[in-house]
């Protein structure tokens, strides 16, 4: 693990796509400008502390079956990362909830993936979901709408 990093900025504007944000808004957008784009394998080598000062990080999902980036997001948030965290790659609309509740601010999706599931499914990605978990870890400040708010245990403890 190195103390200093030569961080390569992620490729900018590499493709057309869509962004899904924590409030459920879904808009056409080029690939976001990110300080770093990471595949799960790379994080161990980089060292968490080196990532914390960054403004924005993209974490890649190589397949919908590989949930490592959910844990990476949570690990970054737990370590105090408060920049923008974007999920990219082969996600399904059904995983948007998982991403936001694991600490991502939003998703960026390539055009073909949006077409595969059709746009309507992505627009509805945060509608037909279990919005309130029993125990919810710290959510990003950007999260609004259905997923924001206290979890079930907090609500119960407050007598709601």
């Amino acid at each position: 693990m190195s103390d200093t990093l030569d961080l390569q900025p992620a490729e900018q504007g590499a493709g057309e796509g869509w962004r899904l944000d924590g409030d459920g808004s879904f808009t056409a957008a080029p690939m976001p400008t990110l300080d770093l784009l990471l595949e799960p394998e790379a994080v161990q080598d980089l060292g968490l502390a080196n990532l914390l000062p960054l403004q924005s990080i993209g974490l890649v999902f190589k397949t919908p079956h590989d949930g490592r980036s959910f844990s990476l997001a949570r690990r970054l948030r737990n370590a105090g990362f408060d920049g923008r965290l974007v999920a990219l790659g082969r996600l399904m609309p059904d995983q948007a909830r998982h991403a936001m509740q694991s600490g991502f601010d939003g998703l960026w999706l390539e055009q073909d993936l949006v077409e595969r599931h059709n746009e309507a499914a992505w627009r509805a990605a945060l509608d037909v979901v279990v919005a309130r978990l029993y125990s919810q870890q710290r959510l990003p400040a950007s999260l609004a709408g259905r997923l924001a708010g206290p979890d079930i245990w907090q609500q119960r403890s407050q007598g709601q």
């Binding site: 949930g67 844990s71 949570r74 998982h98 978990l133 029993y134």
Partner: peptide, 13 residues
């Protein structure tokens, strides 16, 4: 059961 149900991080272990 409650803690693990639909746990967002541990659904694709």
């Amino acid at each position: 059961r409650q803690w693990s149900s639909l746990h967002p991080e541990f659904a694709f272990l």
